[in-house]
Amino acid sequence: MKLEITTSGEFKMVKVNGRIDTTRAVEFESAVVSLIDQGCKNLIINCFDLNYISSSGLRVFLVLQKRLSGQQGIFRLCCLQPEIQEIFDISGFSTIFQIFPTEEAALAGEK
């Protein structure tokens, strides 16, 4: 797993590359939570290069959403590959998270 962090206006954009399995979920959580600790309020996770996510990884998304919504921040996901989208659909995460097809749509908040 690799993370590429960029800034786009009010948003921090985190591009995840590879797999978020149980072991990497811990690294992923601490990396993104430290972004929030540093003051990031609006976060977009770009999942274009995310090819696997375990339930521990999904849990981290819940943690991030909870953290940010607790401080009136914004948490959005974009560019999910079909296999990842399927996991989100099965688990009902699609209804829990704001998911957008492109970065532009995620930045604008318009599906």
């Binding site: 819940l62 099965i90 688990s91 009902g92 995460f93 209804t95 829990i96």
Partner: peptide, 11 residues
């Protein structure tokens, strides 16, 4: 067939 339910322990 799915029933549209989400995970337990969240919402």
């Amino acid at each position: 067939e799915m029933t549209g339910g989400t995970i337990l322990g969240c919402l």
